[in-house]
């Protein structure tokens, strides 16, 4: 059982609170009318978003709106990835009040690769390694102060890492 931050901005994913102990707890609380309705909104695994095929659909499912490109989001990815199975990608941003960072690869079978939840006090810098099926855009979405900002970079993939 994990502890849940109750102070995260929480306008999304309410609809995704389906199964699971945390959701059940939340529903129980709501039914008693105490209703910290938004408490668990930001803490559920975004199942539907990961199932979307395209990047736009995944972003919509995850956040319910679109992002605007921002030069304050710095995406670091290789120009050419020789091995699509392991593509090092990192992001840093100077934006304040970042609550989450999402990584997408537009041509992967499911575009959404990873979402990181950033509680207050954690720095908005993340590095990870992703699989890419083929040459395509890597998109990073930064959720900051309730708004979405994005950065995009094309990564050329020599050997795909998703189709085997």
């Amino acid at each position: 059982m994990r502890t849940v931050h109750t102070d995260l901005p929480a306008t999304r994913r309410l609809i995704l609170r389906g199964a699971g102990a945390i959701a059940l707890t939340g529903l129980g609380i709501m039914s008693f009318g105490i209703a910290p309705v938004f408490a668990a909104a930001n803490d559920k695994y975004p199942d539907d978003a990961f199932k979307q095929k395209g990047a736009a659909d995944a972003i919509k499912s995850l956040y319910g709106r679109t992002a605007e490109p921002s030069d304050k989001v710095k995406l670091d990815a290789p120009e050419i990835a020789e091995n699509g199975a392991v593509v090092p990608i990192s992001v840093t941003t100077t934006l304040a009040d970042v609550t989450s960072i999402a990584f997408l690869a537009s041509e992967n079978p499911n575009a959404l690769a990873a979402v990181y939840r950033i509680p207050p006090g954690t720095l908005p810098n993340v590095a990870n390694r992703l699989k890419m099926a083929k040459t395509c855009d890597v998109i990073v979405i930064v959720e900051a102060g309730g708004k979405l900002y994005s950065a995009t970079k094309e990564v050329k993939v020599t050997v795909g890492g998703c189709g085997g």
Binding site: D43, Y45, P46, F50, A85, V86, V87, A105, N108, N110, L112, A113, A114, V115, Y116, R117, I118, P119, T122, N128, R129, L130, K131, M132, G161, C162
Partner: peptide
Amino acid sequence: FIADWGAAVS
């Protein structure tokens, strides 16, 4: 820090 990962993580 919480990571939600899909199958595209290496």
